[in-house]
């Protein structure tokens, strides 16, 4: 049978109880609130459901963002503002377009090429003609 010494115990316990003394009014308030507790615990389902929904939405957004197709540079070229229409024709797969302006800017997938036209020019295009 084990025994616990009493005197030092009492001193330490009293020190602890004094340090963490609780007012009667606080104890009464806590008791009153506890005794007035509703019969069922307040449901937290809506909060949990909202959090779960937010998490699922976040994950779906993340997956969609990660699986987005890689961005490719556009091959669409736009005509300069001062040129309303260019007309040309294909000859043996080569599109021949007369250039009416002063400068032609060819900005293909490679390097841009600025050169002064001499009344007309030849543009080599790759890809399907539509």
């Amino acid at each position: 049978m084990t025994t616990e010494p009493n005197e030092p115990n009492e001193h330490v316990d009293r020190t602890l109880r004094d340090a963490f003394a609780v007012g009667d009014d606080v104890a009464r308030r806590v008791s009153d609130h506890a005794l007035a507790a509703p019969p069922h615990r307040p449901r937290r389902a809506p909060l949990v459901a909202s959090l779960a929904l937010a998490a699922v939405t976040l994950c779906a957004g993340l997956v969609a963002w990660l699986s987005r197709p890689p961005v490719r540079p556009s091959h669409v070229t736009t005509a300069p503002a001062n040129v309303t229409e260019l007309t040309g024709s294909f000859v043996d797969g080569v599109l021949i377009v007369p250039i009416p302006g002063d400068v032609i800017v060819i900005a293909g997938p490679g390097q841009p090429d600025d050169r002064p036209p001499e009344g007309s020019g030849v543009v080599l295009l790759e890809g399907d003609a539509r």
């Binding site: 963490f20 609780v22 009667d24 008791s31």
Partner: peptide, 19 residues
Amino acid sequence: DLERTIRDLAPRVLRYAVA
């Protein structure tokens, strides 16, 4: 009985929880 138990336990559990 419940009320007596709660009133008895309240200060004890309060002290414990605060510490």
